[in-house]
Each structure stands twice: as structure tokens, then as C-alpha cells.
């Protein structure tokens, strides 16, 4: 297992989450509506950040599958806030040069009449630096 101390500290700092508060109950993953889409599940994000195993998370599609619905934050009995960990890893990934998930040029092709504006705004917030 690769232990990346720098990235680990960075993610803990950005998220403001203390992953060692996790008691391994799995309620976050039990509650997650995007579970089946994810390679790494919310509890794994917390546990892998705790052990410094960051690289696999950074390269995983799971980062973009999290809906940011915050159900895991609401239900975690220990106040760990897994969605914030996912968000911090995602930010770490897209902050690299050229790592934006979405470009402005690509937007018109994705939009149709039913797409709410709010979706575009939050997509930019989520997928770009």
C-alpha cells in the first residue's frame, strides 16, 4: 500500500474531517444512493484517507459519482462527514493542471431544454477548479 503523507494531510486539511473518528459502522455506504456506481464507497474514502492510500482514490471515477447529497453526513453517528472527504479528494484531483473534468466548450453539447441552469452551475463548481 502506498502511503502519501503529503496528500493525506492536504485532504484532511481541505475537508476539515478527522478520519480517525470513524468507527467502521458503514452507515455512510449503507445510506449512499450512488453506491452501485462507485468503485470506492464512502466508508472506503474515509478509511483509505486515514491510512494514506490516496492515489487509487485520485484516479478513480468514484470521485465524480458522488452526488453530494450529504446523506452520509446526515447519518454518520460519529460526525465524520464522508462526503467532505470525497469532495476534498476531488478538489485535489482537479486542481492539477489540465485536470478539469468539464470544459466550457463541452457544455453546449450537453445542454437541452430540460437542463436546469442550477445543474450547470453546480457541475462547474464540482468538476472544475
Amino acid at each position: 500500500m502506498h502511503n502519501n503523507k503529503y496528500l493525506q494531510e492536504e485532504i484532511i486539511r481541505i475537508s476539515g474531517v478527522n478520519p480517525s473518528k470513524c468507527m467502521r459502522c458503514g452507515k455512510c455506504s449503507a445510506t449512499c444512493p450512488a453506491y452501485d456506481e462507485m468503485e470506492y464507497h464512502p466508508h472506503q474514502f474515509v478509511n483509505m484517507v486515514e491510512s494514506g492510500d490516496i492515489e487509487p482514490l485520485l484516479n478513480s471515477e468514484s470521485l465524480y459519482k458522488c452526488l453530494s447529497c450529504f446523506a452520509c453526513i446526515d447519518r454518520c453517528p460519529r460526525g465524520v462527514q464522508p462526503a467532505k472527504v470525497v469532495e476534498a479528494v476531488r478538489l485535489t484531483a482537479i486542481r492539477k493542471k489540465g485536470a478539469n473534468r468539464m470544459t466550457a466548450d463541452a457544455v453546449p453539447a450537453m445542454v437541452d431544454e430540460d437542463t436546469p441552469q442550477q445543474l450547470l452551475v453546480s457541475a462547474f463548481r464540482k468538476y472544475t477548479k
Binding site: 467502521r24 459502522c25 458503514g26 452507515k27 455506504s29 449503507a30 445510506t31 449512499c32 453506491y35 452501485d36 464507497h41 466508508h43 472506503q44
Partner: peptide, 11 residues
């Protein structure tokens, strides 16, 4: 009921 099976890593 929607639940975690952490050992099987399944929902």
C-alpha cells in the same frame, strides 16, 4: 432495507 455489508464490500 438498504444496508452495508462491509466485509463483502456490498450494499
Amino acid at each position: 432495507v438498504q444496508a452495508s455489508d462491509l466485509i463483502a464490500n456490498k450494499q
